[in-house]
Design a protein around this nucleic acid. Structure first.
Length: 468
RNA sequence: GGCCCUGUCGUCUAGUCUGGUCCAGGACACAGGCUUUUCAAGCCUGGUACACGGGUUCGAAUCCCGUCGGGGCUACCA
């Protein structure tokens, strides 16, 4: 609890690979990373895969990939708890030898009956301590015979408090908790034990995690005390909530960060958004890049209350980052989202991106938005008509534009002049419709430039035919 | 039920520690307007919040007490 004055800052992100990396986890990872970078410390990743049934390699992969995407790569090779069983067994044996932990032979059925009984009488469920005073040699004999026993820690009946770096002082009465199970066997440690051992053995200085772990904290402190090792400081982050302050919806929870990537969100936008969920810089600033995030981040400014996930703001940030991105960079990011044939026409694609940039909401939507540049969609002749303008006038204007485009080296000023004379809507609308085949698109002159003379003439010609 | 955390616009939040400059500021969203060939973008304007009730004080979003609301945990899951 009393970190030395020069203790090295080491934080960890410790997900269990029982599901994809979701928003809550991603934010916990980000805050850890930010804290480490701000303090000049190290950011580590630990895979908590002690639950053999639920842990899956594919989830581990998803989590690690998500971190890479956000640029939150660990400073040391990630470690896996499943590969550290020896270490936990040793610590477990040590506690057993020192009588700080003991074997418990109660069956799950007995325990469940006890729990129900306590609940029905209005008591908080707690282990009664039947096996607490079994003589060690008797326990050893039984363990050799049946092999079926779990390990419990002797919970001291005292109050345990810690100074949470975001919540302040928190105190628990451990008399209410009782002797909790810390392992299913010597080689099957449970979460609270494995995490406690790892945090001290890997020299973690600050444990920054979701507040769903607050009630685990005193147990972990007791375990670390029993081990005789100096524990880390704790900081518990408010949870991300769903609409209505309810739990984040199942759908949202199951939406992995990588799904957002596939939907066309930029890592920068996601990072910015996640940072603002439960944290805020000193100044009123909504758009804040990675570098400034690192510079500004402190745990003191982390919000205490839960934050509702608000996708509209994410969308706005995403559009903002797209709008302000360099075309070259945008092109790189767009690559996985567009047909290969488009990529072959690099220069054209670049011009298209330039014209559509401020309209793009997400990378995925770009394809539909820009498709008309590569092939004129079929459209109804009615689309060419501007408001109440007679067909004949539209036709005449399109013909004039066709002539200008065909004969002039730089047709833009002349088209504009024509539009001034004949009416902007009467000239520009049908031109735009003819070139795009859509009711919404960038301006006609811009499209014309991207399309080039030949293709533009073809499209205008087609429109004239449609009207004629 | 018990234990713990938490409560400023619909949402993210500034302000709370160190009471007055806050009849509460910014952002997203929304509404209206400007611009405009369309859709966007941009610009301008607008509305909406200190959960409630008591104190303390000349004065409270800020301090104290209570109530209510929300969340987490209560596993041989993490």
């Amino acid at each position: 609890m009393n970190p030395g004055p020069k203790r090295e800052i080491r934080v960890r992100f410790a997900p269990s690979p029982t599901g994809p990396l979701h928003l809550g986890n991603a934010r916990a990872a980000l805050f850890n990373w930010l804290f480490a970078r701000h303090e000049g410390g190290k950011f580590l990743v630990r895979i908590e895969d002690t639950d053999k049934e639920r842990s899956k390699k594919e989830f581990e992969k998803d989590i690690l990939e998500g971190l890479v995407w956000l640029g939150l790569e660990p400073d040391e090779e990630p470690i896996r708890q499943s590969e550290r069983l020896e270490i936990y067994a040793e610590s477990l044996q040590k506690l057993l030898n020192e009588k700080k932990a003991y074997w418990c032979f109660c069956t799950p059925e007995e325990l469940e009956a006890e729990r129900q009984n306590q609940l029905s009488q209005g008591f908080a469920p707690k282990y009664g301590g039947r096996c607490r005073h079994l003589p060690p040699d008797e326990a050893d004999a039984r363990i050799k015979k049946s092999g079926k026993a779990v390990i419990r820690i002797r919970m001291p009946e005292k109050k345990v408090s810690f100074n949470d770096l975001v919540k302040g002082k928190i105190e628990f009465d451990m008399a209410l908790v009782g002797d909790v199970i810390i392992a299913k066997s010597l080689r099957e440690p449970l979460y609270n034990f494995a995490a406690s051992v790892d945090d001290v053995l890997t020299n973690i200085s600050h444990v920054i995690r979701g507040e769903d772990h607050i009630s685990n904290t005193p147990k972990q402190i007791v375990i670390q005390e029993a081990l005789g090792l100096e524990g880390p400081q704790f900081a518990h982050l408010p949870l991300i909530l769903g609409t209505g302050r309810q739990k984040l919806s199942k759908r949202r929870l199951e939406t992995s960060l990588n799904d957002y990537k596939k939907e066309g969100y930029l890592a920068e936008a996601m990072l910015n958004f996640l940072a603002l969920l439960g944290w805020h810089p000193r100044e009123d600033r909504e758009v804040i890049n990675r570098q400034d995030l690192v510079k500004e981040f402190t745990l003191e400014r982390v919000q205490k209350g839960g934050a509702v996930f608000n996708e509209e703001k994410l969308n706005w940030l995403n559009a903002h980052y797209i709008k302000t991105a360099k075309t070259e960079e945008l092109m790189e990011k767009l690559k996985p989202f567009v047909p290969k044939t488009w990529l072959a026409k690099k220069k054209v694609l670049q011009n298209i991106i330039e014209t559509e940039k401020e309209r793009i909401k997400n990378l995925k939507g770009f394809k539909d938005m820009a498709a008309f540049f590569f092939g004129l969609p079929d459209y109804d002749a009615k689309l060419l008509i501007w408001k109440e303008t007679p067909k004949e006038r539209i036709l005449a204007n399109l013909k004039s534009v066709h002539d200008i485009t065909k004969n002039s080296a730089s047709p833009e000023p002349e088209i504009l002049a024509l539009a001034e004379k004949e009416g902007r809507g009467e000239v520009l609308w049908p031109l735009r419709a003819a070139l795009s085949g859509q009711d919404a698109s960038p301006g006609p002159i811009e499209i014309l430039k991207v399309l080039g003379k030949t293709e533009s003439l073809k499209r205008i010609g087609k429109a004239i035919k449609k009207l004629g």
